[in-house]
Design a binder for these strands. Sequence first.
DNA 1: TTCAAGAATGTTAGCGCTCACGATATTCCA
DNA 2: TGGAATATCGTGAGCGCTAACATTCTTGAA
Lengths: 346, 346
Amino acid sequence: MDHTSPSVRVNRDPAMTDVARLAGVSHQTVSRVLNGHPNVREQTRLRVRAAIEQLGYRPNRAARTLATGKSQLIGVVAQNSTLFGPSSLLAAFELAAAAQGFVVSVRRVRVLDRSSIAAAVEHHREQRAAGIVVIAPTAAADAALTEVPTDVPLVAVDGDPERAGAALVTVDQEAGARLATRHLLDAGHETVWHVAGPADWFDAAGRMRGWQQTLEAAGAEVPPVSPADWSAASGYRAGLMLARMPEVTAVFAANDHLALGILRAMSERGRSVPGDVSVVGFDDVPEAGYFIPPLTTVRPDFDTVAAQALSLLLAGIKGRGQGGADRRVVTPTLVERGSVGPPKSP
Amino acid sequence: MDHTSPSVRVNRDPAMTDVARLAGVSHQTVSRVLNGHPNVREQTRLRVRAAIEQLGYRPNRAARTLATGKSQLIGVVAQNSTLFGPSSLLAAFELAAAAQGFVVSVRRVRVLDRSSIAAAVEHHREQRAAGIVVIAPTAAADAALTEVPTDVPLVAVDGDPERAGAALVTVDQEAGARLATRHLLDAGHETVWHVAGPADWFDAAGRMRGWQQTLEAAGAEVPPVSPADWSAASGYRAGLMLARMPEVTAVFAANDHLALGILRAMSERGRSVPGDVSVVGFDDVPEAGYFIPPLTTVRPDFDTVAAQALSLLLAGIKGRGQGGADRRVVTPTLVERGSVGPPKSP
DNA sequence: TTCAAGAATGTTAGCGCTCACGATATTCCA
DNA sequence: TGGAATATCGTGAGCGCTAACATTCTTGAA
């Protein structure tokens, strides 16, 4: 870099050798105290720490990464959405990873298609990420993962529950849906209608399966599902249809925003909730308790999902070579509020 | 590392020298084509590219960072929340930064106090981040920024609009509040009540100021404000109070979730919206259009805020040494829906 | 034809760290 | 008290890249 004037280097960040010189030891000893190596005399350890303090020395991560060949970086691939589930998951994961001393770098993709996901993963590989997490809630996203090289640990969150051969953390959508459906049935409803999320989402598919299973197990009629996306708008549209049919007395919505739209449609049509029709949602968004009426819903614990994903990833990072196909499932719980009641007696 | 067995290096990622050897050039020439340096013959450029392709070579960022002393990394400090504003901002920023070839690393902090922020910023400095963005919506967070060294470009988002001497992007909260208040006044209301956000948030303070100014300018009475946090729960509590007072016919809530709680309280108390009382929110969360009734609200454009923050940061990264005190303000707009009407004639 | 200017490429020396190993210093038990 | 075992510390090389300089190859005009 600079071969002539030493003055240029004056304003550079202090490096390990500077600390070493000041403490009167070798740079290697400084490295040892920094990394908590045992064989360092207490007295020199203190001298080194004092020198570090005095110089305001901070280790250069890039140099360490270069020397060791491994980084402390976890790459995350997520979709560009403000959906409650994904974003709480992300926040929880970042916090958990930071607590373990990892840096997390997020790469957002606009659409969850094969090539976008692949590019994002590739990006993280280029950064020499120690591990990669992909939030892959759709079939297309999950499919992209089958193609990526396996030399860096990768865990999928919300991926295909059926797929084998990769680390995966999911919430048990079916169990959640069973909880919701059963709750409605137990309240006395003959059957339960369902407003489903987008068909290519595993979450949506799982919730639908759980709903259908429960109905069938109970010998109840399985009414046609109302297709929707995750938005309140589509919930509203579905709700408008449902409100016209006097026989619908119970609705399980695939998420809370859908439920919000349904509530609104019911209200407009003069059908009271939970008097005329009961509604259950999924997600437990923070404001769900303040819908009109307060929404009974299913709550997946995103903190736990994040923690599991991290632990799976760390296992992969440490015990390289295997540990691939582990999977963790977290079971949601039912939060009872005010949107469910008994059916109106005819 | 390995002085004995060359076989260990067999499975290592290909490096620049490998590409160079295969292409029959020097590693420096490879570096040149990688960095788009002009003086490379087209023919050799192609040879190099072919070799890169063939080996599946990917440059090692850590090595580059070490050699150049600068990274392509932007550090972001954000609070650990799923509040709509901050998380949309974050998503928008990550997308914009990625488009410019930057990696963004997010550090969440549990509380927005001085030491947490300082630690998070320090963390990014340790990573040799090229620039840092801090989402600093409270006084404490903003105060922490005055202490950080200025050798790496830093831009605050949502920071203290009054503070001088630092790059800052904010949305014009006062203007938004004026829009909302004026809209309510124009509908014929004598005055407008306000449910405010947490006092230590600049957003909340600004919205309150804008509301108060508008009232004063119009010669309207300035009623006492109802203090709240950002949650629907606290909006509900405030709404319960407001619902008891027949003279309140118009409420400006500091955000949409607060408004949701208010809507719920009004509904419970039998006061119709917008028949008896009109409500305006702030944020335009995606589901605001499906509240009961659909919420008229103020929409800040987070994409623009993110874009401005990035452009400010890049300016700081490029034109080192100055460019400090620039600031950008983005003005929100009013979204009219169904929660505002004329006051009931007495 | 010739030689200087510029284009194209190569060579060398670090960036700041860790790893492997060698060199001392210290300890402990026979 | 001696020397092997152990603790403590230092030395040298190299991680993969870029900056600066050196060198060779092309041009084009005298």
